[in-house]
Amino acid sequence: MRRSRASRTRSGRARSRSSVPTSWSSFARSRRLPRRPRVSDQASRRVPVLDAAVNGLDRVLRVLLTVAFGAILVVTLVQIAGRNGLLSTMTGADEIARYLMVVTTFLAIPVLTKGRLHIAVDALSHYLPAGVPQVWLHRVIFAIEGAFYLFFANFAVLVVGNYQRTGQTSAELSIPLSWPMLAIVTGAVLGGLVSLALLVRTFLRAEEYADKSRQGFPGAERTDG
């Protein structure tokens, strides 16, 4: 009895691991614990310049984002320590934390786009036949997202101009508001470029792309369950 219960647990565990349907990743893009893409996720024949550029940008941004997010944490802990007399009080800690949150959110756009880590509903993609319709859906999505990021970046540039003209700064540390806005511009521009690169990628080695797209967005990161 004991043994059977234990073994049931073990097999249950094993079952649940293996039963993560291989197809779920094709329609669930909201995932936990995103990880670096596997080599097998990539189209096997590379388009050297484009892939190298996108991957290089991705790697740089990941380091940058990790450091910035760590800084948010440290700054907030320093503020708590300061208020409780462990360190000297620091004004403006919450300003740094807030702006870094904004900055990391927007600078993450290219990484989210490349790894298809955005929150999106893929019911349509799930029900659409694989092959050509699937590929064209991807193209439409990349085109819309890319166009939006570039529109958004265009307007954000005007906002940066406005902030620079008025010289508006944050209340406590006098951080120019054009700085976080500039990071927003950067994130949106790079997000637009990555979207367009991915769009172009669907036309290069198109057959391979169609083949890969049966399992969802090629290069999409997924959890291991």
Binding site: V159, N162, Y163, T166, Q168, L177
Partner: peptide, 10 residues
């Protein structure tokens, strides 16, 4: 107030 300032300026 901060956003109103920016909004008035723009």
């Amino acid at each position: 107030d901060e956003e109103l300032g920016a909004g008035l300026a723009s």
